[in-house]
Design a protein around this nucleic acid. Structure first.
Length: 211
DNA sequence: CGTGTGATGTCT
DNA sequence: GACATCACACGG
């Protein structure tokens, strides 16, 4: 997939376009592949829920201000990582949080990374287990072995993006938008209600109890 | 099923 | 102290 200009578009357009695309990661000779089914947009000073809400970068958040296509990984609640892809917003900074994926390849290794099985040989497939692999931003980072060392790298370097099935182009009626997950209305104000979460609505792989 | 809580990095 | 999370314990 030609990534040269892919992320150089308004961030909400990029977010919708990412649905159905595929993330590919190779670690330790394992090939891990997953389809993006749920994303959220975070912008800048207009967006009280964004790490970039102060309008100036910090050491952690500078990928949100960097070149389109930069990977931004941060630690949440001290224990989990969240994967974001930088795309430009009207106010400058911005990133698309990848919230859930459908596992396509390497599920046995994902299950090991998620501590759902002790070894890949013990993995037995099936929806019960597979839905636990990537149905949340922290889970998918664990499954794909994504940590903050990837933050600041470019998409196409340590994490690949493949064409997959572009749902927004081919079946836009399958795309829905909702309020973003987990925001505190008291601290985020009106932005807590903005419909900046984009999902493949009929996918059983999205987070928050769907499917 | 639901609700509560503990783990704990980075920023305010 | 707040938080863009998750897993586990416990009660009905």
């Amino acid at each position: 997939m030609n990534l040269e200009h892919y992320f150089e578009r308004p961030i909400h357009e990029v977010a919708r376009d990412l649905l159905g695309r595929e993330l590919v990661r190779s670690v330790g000779g394992e090939r891990l592949r997953a389809r993006i089914v749920e994303v959220e947009v975070y912008e800048g000073e207009n967006d009280a829920a964004s790490h970039a809400r102060r309008g100036t970068p910090t050491e952690r958040t500078k990928p949100m201000f960097a070149a389109p296509g930069t990977v931004y990984v941060y630690t949440i609640y001290g224990m989990y990582q969240c994967l974001n892809l930088r795309a430009p917003s009207e106010v400058g900074p911005g990133a698309v949080l990848i919230r859930a994926c459908e596992p396509l390849e390497g599920q046995a290794y994902m299950a090991v990374r998620r501590s759902l099985v002790e070894s890949a040989g013990n993995y037995v497939g099936g929806p019960e287990v597979d839905k636990q692999l990537m149905s949340g931003p922290g889970k998918l980072c664990q499954a794909l072995s994504i940590d903050t060392e990837l933050s600041g790298t470019m998409v196409g370097d340590k994490l690949q993006l493949k064409q997959g099935q572009p749902v927004w182009r081919d079946a836009p009626q399958r795309v829905e938008s909702t309020a973003r997950i987990g925001l505190n209305p008291d601290t985020c104000g009106p932005s807590a209600k903005w419909p900046w979460r984009y999902i493949i609505a009929d996918s059983p792989w999205i987070s928050c109890g769907a499917g």
